[in-house]
């Protein structure tokens, strides 16, 4: 029997990541094209109630590994769970979301299985039954198509790039596996988790991001960015220049030495568009650029550009968005 396509459906705090549902959907499409079974894995503590949500995205089989040892994420605990699932599914392809967890977990598991791993992929291809992946390299200045050899191929998928797609109800076999791991095998342990201040939406998770740069002139003017982000229900991003200047924490930085994001809507305010910034957001679906300088490189990436003073433009946008939302 040919091996399956296995998707690691990431949960944190009992919530399935949206990017994992995207990975599940892409896994379904890949399995269909190759004529393989789609197997999903949910690992964690008390995760049984997440089964229905995962099943809606069309796996043929759902593996649940439920253990108090998996209550908090640990590389070694989750690597053991994913390893068991790979063996159980006779997986030939393993997909994960390219999140903090996926980036930590996938290479360790790939090394254990001698698998080829492509990280941060933006497309998966299956021409002629051959599985390939495409990923940005050199900070998005080039795209590499990668090919695999050997019995197992792994890929992590850039969030917000692959469409999540629920499926009509179909049969799904649910299999519970016991975690085969002594507690002592988990050496690196999370001892504490500190939530980001004020429950802000993280840029890595957001489907709308409003970013500010040097054009804001003063750190206090980030309030304008926050207000626009709030009106849209989005996250606040920033350029490297203002992070380096200490106007806002590094967690907000978008770009080569910050976070790589691909939201549905990215609004760059007073950001000139240095190559390092473009590297972090150029795969966003819709990009709006607001800048005084008509020659700013950001306009080359923009779907919509406004050449003008952001202090005049943004308040009008906020007003207009609020008016539309109130309708």
């Amino acid at each position: 029997m040919p091996g399956g396509v296995l998707v690691f459906a990431e949960q944190r705090g009992g919530v399935l990541k949206r990017s994992s549902l995207e990975a599940l959907s892409e896994g379904r499409r890949t399995a269909d094209r190759l004529g393989r079974l789609l197997v999903a894995l949910i690992a964690g503590d008390g995760i049984g109630r997440l089964a229905d949500q995962a099943v809606a995205f069309g796996p043929d089989r759902l593996l649940l590994i439920d253990s108090p040892l998996l209550a908090a994420y640990s590389t070694e605990g989750y690597a053991a769970a994913l390893g068991q699932a790979i063996t159980h599914a006779s997986a030939e392809i393993v997909l994960l979301a390219c999140t903090a967890m996926g980036r930590d977990l996938a290479p360790r598991v790939a090394a254990r299985f001698g698998a080829g791993l492509a990280t941060d992929c933006v497309a998966l291809m299956t021409e002629g039954g051959v599985f390939r992946a495409r990923r940005p390299v050199y900070s998005g200045k080039a795209y590499a198509t990668v090919e695999f050899s050997g019995s197992l191929a792994m890929a992590t998928l850039r969030p917000n790039v692959f469409p999540a797609q629920e499926r009509p109800p179909a049969a799904c076999e649910i299999v519970r596996l016991e975690l085969e791991l002594p507690e002592s095998a988990i050496r690196a342990r999370v001892v504490r988790t500190e939530l980001a201040e004020k429950k802000e939406i993280d840029v890595a998770d957001a489907s709308i991001i409003v970013s500010g740069g040097r054009g804001l002139k003063d750190p206090a003017n980030f309030s304008l960015i926050r207000e626009l982000a709030e009106a849209l229900g989005g996250a606040v991003g920033a350029s490297r220049a203002v992070v380096d200047a200490g106007w806002i924490e590094h967690a907000h930085q978008v770009g080569q030495t910050g976070k790589v994001v691909a939201p549905a809507l990215y609004i760059a305010c007073g950001i000139s568009g240095a190559i390092q910034h473009l590297a972090g957001m150029s795969t966003s679906k819709v990009i709006v650029a607001i800048n005084k300088d008509p020659d700013a490189p950001i306009f080359k990436a923009a779907t919509y550009g406004i050449v003008g003073d952001l202090f005049a433009v943004i308040p009008k946008m906020i007003e207009e968005i609020r008016r539309l939302k109130a309708e």
């Binding site: 999140t99 903090a100 342990r189 999370v190 988790t193 980001a196 890595a204 967690a251």
Partner: peptide, 11 residues
């Protein structure tokens, strides 16, 4: 740093 939080890990 993870999405929306910081994990303090001991190893």
């Amino acid at each position: 740093e993870i999405e929306g939080a910081i994990e303090i890990v001991e190893a």
